[in-house]
């Protein structure tokens, strides 16, 4: 079954049946990751490029490994070591890559909407690996995949997103995806870090952590994006931690078998305590594994079929 669009740009525009198709396919892909020979020949002869204008460890590594496990070829371009340093524009860089025969560009860029822009100007597929404060759809999908694997469903779950939602593309992608799949989304943050553009999205917003944690099935902790805090939106990391840090004591309010998630990289002792990060209820390492499975599913669904 083909996806509705040949690009994956955000979860806001992705139909719920496509998300379900991706999550189901990822279940099959996860089995491959457990094999001693982690490679299937499916995407032989396909090639993709990761084009990252921002630093990344897990997203980029997992896209590249997903490509290798599916037998596609991948190259990676990082801004620091490329002609972008010489002032080449995004479009010129993308066209150069396409001229070499690449079937897909996976891009991370600090400007919101940049992936949409790119998708309108290239022939191949575009996957958004994070654009500014807008969307990070593959993170949203892998978070939903992890929740579904542990709890067996998404519908009716209470998912609490904690932290810097204003700057967080992970939060936005989680909200769009989870609400479409029938989960109940709550958000807790200091009011200066709450997003202003929730529109008619059905999200319960709290400016204190405790009421948002009550009965939560999943707590998704966001990274405090210290690099995006220029305007003094909260007094200090220490004070943030005192009021909004997720620790064992506060988690007693949540469901007894609550899952604690974090997209990484963590600021240990700021948004999440070390005991919680390393506790059995934390799925942080598993999220990374699942990220590879979800990205394999996307590569198959976008590159696997015939060109029309």
């Amino acid at each position: 079954m083909k996806l509705a669009s040949r690009h994956v740009l955000d979860l806001e525009t992705m139909p719920a049946e496509d998300m379900k198709n991706i999550l189901d396919t990822a279940e099959s892909m996860k089995e491959i990751l457990g094999r001693s020979i982690k490679k299937v020949p499916t995407l032989r002869g396909k090639s993709l490029c990761t084009l990252f204008y921002e630093p990344s460890t897990r997203t980029r590594a997992s896209f590249e490994l997903a490509a290798k496990y599916m037998s596609a070829d991948s190259i990676s371009i990082a801004t620091a070591t490329s002609s972008i340093k010489k002032g080449e524009t995004l479009l010129d860089t993308a066209r150069t890559i396409e001229a070499m025969g690449v079937d897909m560009i996976i891009m991370r860029h600090p400007v919101s909407g940049s992936s949409h822009f790119l998708s309108r100007h290239v022939k191949g597929a575009v996957i958004n690996a994070g654009d500014g404060m807008h969307a990070h759809p593959t993170q949203g999908l892998l978070d939903m995949f992890t929740m579904r694997q542990h709890l067996g469903r998404l519908e009716g779950l209470k998912v609490t997103i904690v932290g810097d939602a204003l700057h967080s593309r992970v939060a936005r992608s989680n909200m769009w995806g989870l609400i479409k799949m029938g989960a109940q989304v709550c958000m807790a943050a200091p009011s200066t870090l709450l997003p202003l553009d929730l529109g008619d999205l059905d999200v319960k917003v709290y400016d204190r952590l405790e009421p948002a944690l009550e009965g939560a099935d999943v707590v998704n902790v966001l990274r405090l994006q210290l690099e995006r805090q220029k305007r003094g939106l909260f007094p200090s990391a220490r004070e943030y931690s005192q009021f909004y840090g997720v620790n064992q004591e506060r988690l007693k309010l949540a469901s007894p078998d609550v899952l604690v998630m974090h997209p990484g990289p963590m600021n240990r002792g700021v948004e999440i305590s070390t005991e919680v990060a390393d506790a059995p209820m934390s799925t942080i390492d598993e999220q990374v594994t699942n990220g590879v499975a979800v990205r394999m599913a996307l590569l198959y669904l976008l590159l696997g079929g015939a060109d029309e």
Binding site: D24, S28, I32, G305
Partner: peptide, 23 residues
């Protein structure tokens, strides 16, 4: 065994087959 990922006609079929689990 699910053989979808090993098919030799994946790049010629327009109806993309659903991958299921190998167990």
């Amino acid at each position: 065994l699910d053989i979808t990922l090993y098919r030799d006609d994946l790049t010629t079929r327009t109806d993309q087959p659903i991958v299921q689990k190998t167990e």
